[in-house]
Amino acid sequence: MQNSVLITSSIGKKLIMGLTGLFLVFFLVVHASINGCIWFNDEGKTFLYYAHFMGTNFLVHIAEVGLFGGLILHMVDGLLLWKQNRDARPVKYAYSNPSANSKWYSRSMGLLGTLILFFLIVHLRNFWGPNRLNQITTGEELNLFQLMQEDFSNLWMVVFYVAACFSLFWHLLHGFKSAFQSLGLNNVKYNKAIEIAGTAFAIIVPLVFALMPISFYFNLVH
């Protein structure tokens, strides 16, 4: 038997994409659940309780390293795929009609991912970065609820966040289902269920995220 290079082979790369993707999907669930606590309308009390837990718990810190690792792997792998796939067709078609055979967002995962990355940089700079910096320098956490209120009073910031949620929606619309396919979990019996779950997830999670800045902007959260 020849050696298989699971990580660098074409199928290995999609396995990594799928596994890290599902891991990030899991993170989104946690993130959305905790941030959803803002709607308790208790001036962020519940939210801050969990935010404090996430910001200080030792195990969560370890998980956080894993999360960044997964994210970076997802990005690096994605960029590698994008480059290799571009190079696999040195001369492009003069005329192509891809919409006849596939969805635009499936073909644009690299672009959507990059948009999400830009968003992430801004997003981390807004919240996670300052908070961690403060923790390290002063040992104190910032009031993230207050921080959100401030940031999301800016209309442009709200628009930016909502736009990012659209990118996330399309990214998930392809990515969720795709992860199962990559892992070989494709069975006629369950495909419908995976499809429905994937579409539902792709709608609900970005919607939840999008509603947060909107809610703050219209003062629906206090």
Binding site: S10, I11, K13, K14, M17, L81, Q84, N85, D87, A88, R89, P98, A100, N101, S102, K103, S106, R107, M109, H174, K177, S178, Q181, S182
Partner: peptide, 13 residues
Amino acid sequence: GFGNCTNIGACEA
């Protein structure tokens, strides 16, 4: 030197 699959589905179509 074939590209990688990203589950786009154009092949099947």
